[in-house]
């Protein structure tokens, strides 16, 4: 095995050095490749707006105008407010979702009945897009932030609970034995072994919960109109639609994309600093 590898290495080195004609798109660094594609797409987008006139031009904005609208929106403050409103409601809902998921998981770990209940509820509720409950929540709770929070917390709870309980259930029994051997039990065993050992599942649960919550809140704000004490990003888009401000609709959409990407990066970073660094999850 090692002999084969040694025999191969020099060959690869030679071919990479000499055969410049073999350098293809795939040989470029990923960042460069993606950067070129991004610039090309933005260029195509900008170009497409040049050919539009009349009604079409009403419906389309190029990346430069959209960039300007984002800068304006942040300078004016209403895009900032919308972003903060959405994030505040989402984070509150996620916090509630995490607490409820933790309780459900504890109950599920603690008794077989709890486990059955969690599994059944998840199987029933998880496939239902959370936004489908919005009309009902509005009738039950009213046209206020609480209805939104309930809907989004609901979107977060189930993927989180099922991930965390899977994580707890699949903790390596040897690690648990080591934990008990050094004298851990009860809550100290949960904190010292269960939680860190289940971290890959917990992080992926939070990731999925966030993704569900993020999609749900934007959709809910679009339907809901003003949410509580000020509209979020979904409302920002809808508001722009009412006032025929196409560039602001694009600005809202792009802001949503950017925040989505930012959170994905944040979670990736979190994973790289923890579970990937610890070899508990492959990159």
């Amino acid at each position: 095995m090692s002999e084969t590898r040694e025999a191969e290495q020099p060959v690869t080195a030679v071919s990479a050095g000499s055969a410049h004609h073999r350098r293809t798109w795939g040989d470029l660094p990923t960042v460069l490749r993606r950067g070129i594609v991004l610039v090309a797409l933005l260029g195509a987008w900008q170009l497409s707006t040049l050919f539009m006139t009349g009604a079409q031009a009403q419906l389309m904005r190029g990346p430069l105008e959209v960039g300007e609208a984002i800068v304006d929106g942040f300078a004016r403050g209403d895009l900032v407010d919308a972003t903060l409103t959405t994030l505040r409601i989402l984070l509150l809902s996620m916090a509630i979702g995490i607490v409820v998921a933790a309780l459900l998981t504890t109950f599920a770990m603690w008794s077989k009945l709890g486990d059955d209940i969690l599994n059944l509820l998840t199987a029933m509720i998880n496939p239902l897009p959370a936004i489908a409950l919005l009309p009902l929540a509005m009738i039950w709770i009213g046209l206020n932030t609480t209805a939104l929070v309930v809907i989004i917390a609901n979107a977060v709870i189930w993927p989180l609970a099922i991930n965390v309980s899977t994580g707890f259930r699949t903790v390596n029994p040897t690690l648990l034995a080591v934990g008990r051997n050094i004298g851990l039990s009860g809550w100290r065993l949960v904190r010292g072994v269960y939680l860190p050992a289940a971290l890959p599942h917990i992080v992926s649960g939070i990731k999925t919960g966030w993704a569900f919550g993020w999609r749900t809140i934007i959709a809910a704000e679009l339907v809901f109109g003003v949410a509580g004490e000020g509209g979020g990003l979904g409302y920002f888009i809808n508001y722009a639609r009412f006032f025929n401000r196409t560039e602001d609709m694009f600005a809202g959409i792009v802001t949503i994309m950017i925040i989505g990407i930012a959170f994905d990066l944040l979670f990736s970073l979190l994973e790289r600093k923890t579970v990937i660094k610890w070899g508990m999850k492959t990159a």
């Binding site: 195509a44 170009l47 079409q56």
Partner: peptide, 21 residues
């Protein structure tokens, strides 16, 4: 329109006969 223009841009011909109705 975007898809069309992207396709045009990617195939390298930029003779854009914009569909301006």
């Amino acid at each position: 329109a975007v898809a069309g223009v992207v396709a045009l841009a990617l195939t390298g011909c930029g003779t854009g006969s914009g569909s301006g109705d």
